[in-house]
Design a protein around this nucleic acid. Structure first.
Lengths: 352, 352
DNA sequence: TTGTATGCGTTATCAT
DNA sequence: ATGATAACGCATACAA
């Protein structure tokens, strides 16, 4: 059925091993033999079987990535950055959607382990990670992204959530806003709580009592941002003059809610958020946000993984985020949202 | 190093084959033997090696998907639908980003073939598909999505681009708009040209000469939509009162451009587009769009693939798209964008 | 009900 | 410079 290496060897009048050497350069091979082998490969349309190769080599050159939801722009951009980096280093990436479900997350981790991935990236879904023990026992190097996993020995690649949130809120304060509400992320997930802490830091430093302000816990998505904002702005007598949203997705929902209430952003309610996903450049007004360094995140995550593979441990890092001021905070709104917020997409023109 | 099946067998005091039978149910096995085997598996933390299994079975239970850009919401939602379907049927999905580059697309196709995927989904990047011959020769079943590949024998899963575009434009006409410009997709890609044809159909049927209207060819992305719109609306004397955009991404860019020009949507310029991606629910106003049936696309694509695997050919299908009217065309704008446009995301609340 | 033997397609280690 | 051969870990036909 399939054409195997032996078939090539026979046609070329040599032995299977030589075919390997021609293909992989494992050792020198005579010019005329090489030519005959190449011809036979071409003629038979031979393609090496990567599965057999992996079995023999005990390496698959395959990495796994499990994300909570691949259709979410934040994870999609993160995945893209990692994939880019993996591709550049000759690895293929398997992507699994946990759909924010621990069961399904575990299933994917298992599947990837069974497929003998050389390493694993995990962006943990909310709540406890059921497959933690399994993962640790597997001896497969892994890295957690975006959130730390409690009790895990694996390194985590994180950004400065607290400091970044503080910068964002300070920026709102600098615009003269004083009543700054917070759409927090889910109560149990670290980046969310850190961002709330940063919001609190900024308010406290400015002499505002955070306790008097609203911190509204909700999921990270657009819809949650929308609904939280409607709730936050419900009472006209006691209205915040700014909102800090823990994610751009929430901010996009917030923008919609503000408009529906007949209010203006930034005039009535200024807005700043976190993540720096690409869509934030095209809202009206453009989103002021703390940009995560996606390419760098991909690079660092990969370094950690390959570091473990090579036995050289890396120091855990906290990467910086950068303020990108657009219109939603009250700054000038650059035409077309200014530079694409996510440096991953170098040339958005070429894309669908 | 790794714990093999033989190790389990030894500890359980039986033979390796029995371990397989316990795991895969290939044949009945005595209760106490099974118990001992299970205990040994647990104790040693044994995990079957999927690579060896694949080699033996000549099946990997792995499918490949190559998309032009995974960070693009349209492809991301499509990928999510396919992944969902694959997961439900026990397959793992490999996702590759071609980055709109034919070279890289080819590299991924090759990689996936070498990895012995059981089947392949291809969302072709713009332009000719360099790996076509290679793909056909491989005898691996494949399906093309979103666009037809010229000269390919593989089935394509498509939606009614022309009919859908016509419906959208007719809807704009029904709102009393007569000067309807078109932001077309790239000139060489089929879904784009079909959507332009649908736009033309509608205008002609309404007694408007399309030749008098603008059809602006540009890539599918947000930035292109933004720039096209600025160009289209540049001349105040001769301004269209509506725009049909070939993709939601373009429409999102168009919305931003309209606002920057100090115009109102839908008051000055009404807008309708195509795809039905989730972010269209949260723009202001919400996007009126032709919704692609993502879950169904995933299902049909998978059916085609498994059909080929089983030797039962399927008839190529053109799936219907559905008009979802929100505020951008002039209809009432439902609060919060109404239902999520992409039925894939059943519960957006839970997501980041 | 269970054990034994063979092969999947590759690469590495011997020889020659 | 090249040919033969032994693993890699698993599934299954066959023998017991």
């Amino acid at each position: 059925m399939t054409v195997r290496r032996a078939d090539v060897a026979k046609l070329a009048g040599t032995s299977p091993a030589v075919v390997s050497y021609v293909l992989n350069g494992g050792r020198p091979v005579a010019a005329h033999t090489r030519a005959k082998v190449l011809a036979a490969i071409e003629q038979l349309g031979y393609r090496p079987n990567g599965i057999a190769r992996s079995l023999r080599m005990n390496r698959t050159m395959t990495l796994g990535l499990v994300v909570p939801d691949n259709a979410n722009p934040f994870f999609a951009e993160l995945a893209r950055a990692i994939e880019e980096e993996a591709f550049a280093r000759g690895y293929t990436l398997l992507i699994g959607n946990a759909a924010e479900d621990d069961q399904r997350q575990t299933t994917y981790v298992r599947t990837f382990l069974a497929r003998q991935v050389d390493g694993l990236f995990l962006v943990p879904a909310h709540g406890p990670v059921g497959c933690l023990e399994e993962l640790e026992r597997s001896r497969v190097p892994w890295v957690s992204l975006d959130r730390q996993v409690d009790g895990a020995t694996a390194p985590a690649v994180l950004v400065d959530n607290r400091g970044g949130a503080r910068v964002a809120v300070e920026h709102l304060l600098a615009h003269g806003r004083t009543r700054i509400a917070c759409i927090a992320g889910p109560r149990d997930v670290m980046p969310a709580t850190d961002r709330v802490a940063g919001w609190r830091d900024a308010l406290t430093a400015a002499g505002v009592r955070p306790a008097d302000m609203l911190a509204w816990h909700a999921p990270f998505g657009r819809r949650a941002g929308y609904e939280s904002t409607r709730a936050i702005l419900a009472d006209p007598r006691d209205r915040p003059d700014a909102i800090f949203a823990a994610s751009d997705q929430q901010a996009i929902g917030a923008l919609r809610a503000i408009a529906e209430l007949g209010l203006g952003c930034p005039t009535d309610v200024a807005l700043a958020s976190f993540d720096g996903i690409a869509p934030g450049a095209f809202t009206t007004p453009g989103l002021t946000t703390m940009v995560q360094p996606f390419p760098q995140l991909g690079r660092v995550a990969m370094d950690h993984l390959l570091g473990q593979l090579a036995g050289t441990e890396q120091q855990p890092q906290v990467l910086p985020v950068e303020l990108l001021a657009r219109g939603s905070c009250g700054c000038d709104d650059p035409p077309g949202g200014g530079r694409a917020s996510a440096p991953t997409s170098t040339n958005e023109m070429g894309k669908r």
